[in-house]
Simulated scan of single mutants.
Amino acid sequence: MSDEVGFIGLGRMGAPMARNVAAAGFRLVLRDESDEAARRVAADTDGRIAAAPSDFAGCGVVVTMLPTSAVVAKALLEWEGGLPQHLPDGAVVVDMSSSVPHDTVALGARLAEHGVALVDAPVSGGVPGAVAGTLSIMMGADDPAAAERAQPVVDAMSARTYRTGGLGTGHAVKALNNFIAASTFVACGEALIAAERFGLDKATLVDVLNTSTGRSFVSSEVLGEHVVDGKFASGFSLPLMTKDVGIALDLLRETGTAAGAGERVHAALAEALEHLGDVDHTRAVEYWASLGR
């Protein structure tokens, strides 16, 4: 496999992930809608910024870390006629975004027309995990050999990889994981509001949760610092959380699964998003606290 890796999407997650790939010895070809973001990562990694799709011609692996399936498809297929035809034989695209599973399968078919394999490998662990290189990866692939070719690059960003099955299954697992996390967040937010209105100390409630059966990633890593202490800087936006729960809700419905919890959680997040816009997801608790008084 070539030691040159393409990396498209250099935001809060993508930038530290790309830096870890470079630290593992790979040479980077970089692209982002923000020229400044690309310049920062290029300066940190000695990577080169792509001016055209042909600049990726030496990349055996191309990573995408972008907001939605539509943005991934646009970046790969619509930029100056498309990227796939410029990639070498046996190249693999690794979509690490939180994409829609059905869109991933469709994109895989489009890339296969050019002899390029697609692997979906979304991540969990947030910005801290991206910086530390300890992300959990959920990898789906129809071609096991393609997954093996991508694995050394993925390993540079992660502590563990779970092979989830065929193409699209990684994105399905990621959506379901984020649905569970979001459900916990909504429940914790409502509990904090009720505690405060009853005259309880919110920090004490969080301490109790973290030594009791209510303990979760949300209670231990999010509530205290970002909600109770008012930092509101978890690194995961409200639009992205709402989007991911929407993907999971569609999956529940498509599989004929009872979706009462999914509908309730998505509605709560969507209502907060309508009123707050593009903010850290933890600020949704402020909106919910303004209701029902």
Rank of each mutant, 00 (worst) to 15 (best):
A259T: 03
R31A: 12
L135P: 06
C188Q: 06
M241W: 08
E113D: 15
R19K: 08
H102E: 13
L118F: 02
I180Y: 14
E190C: 10
A203F: 00
A57D: 13
A259P: 00
A181I: 13
L83V: 00
P88C: 02
A258W: 05
A270W: 04
Y287M: 10
A259F: 11
G11W: 06
A91D: 03
G189R: 05
L192A: 09
D155C: 00
K174C: 07
G133P: 07
V116S: 03
G199S: 12
V105I: 15
H86L: 06
D201C: 08
A38N: 06
R149I: 06
A175L: 05
V285I: 14
S216H: 12
T213D: 07
E78V: 08
R40W: 03
A38K: 05
P128I: 01
T68R: 15
V94N: 10
G166A: 11
E263C: 12
I193D: 04
L10N: 00
R197D: 04
A109S: 14
S34R: 10
I180M: 15
V94D: 07
G189W: 00
R197A: 08
G292K: 15
G25K: 04
A106Y: 09
F232L: 09
G108V: 11
P101M: 12
V123G: 04
A203T: 01
V227A: 12
D32L: 08
V92I: 13
A191E: 10
L205N: 04
T104S: 13
Q151S: 13
M157C: 08
A43M: 09
A194F: 14
L238E: 02
E148P: 02
V72D: 00
D89Q: 15
T169L: 10
L76G: 01
V154E: 04
R39Q: 11
Q85F: 12
L223C: 14
R48P: 03
G25F: 06
G214W: 12
L249M: 13
G6F: 02
I137D: 01
D244Q: 14
M139E: 04
L28A: 11
P84F: 00
L269V: 06
R149D: 03
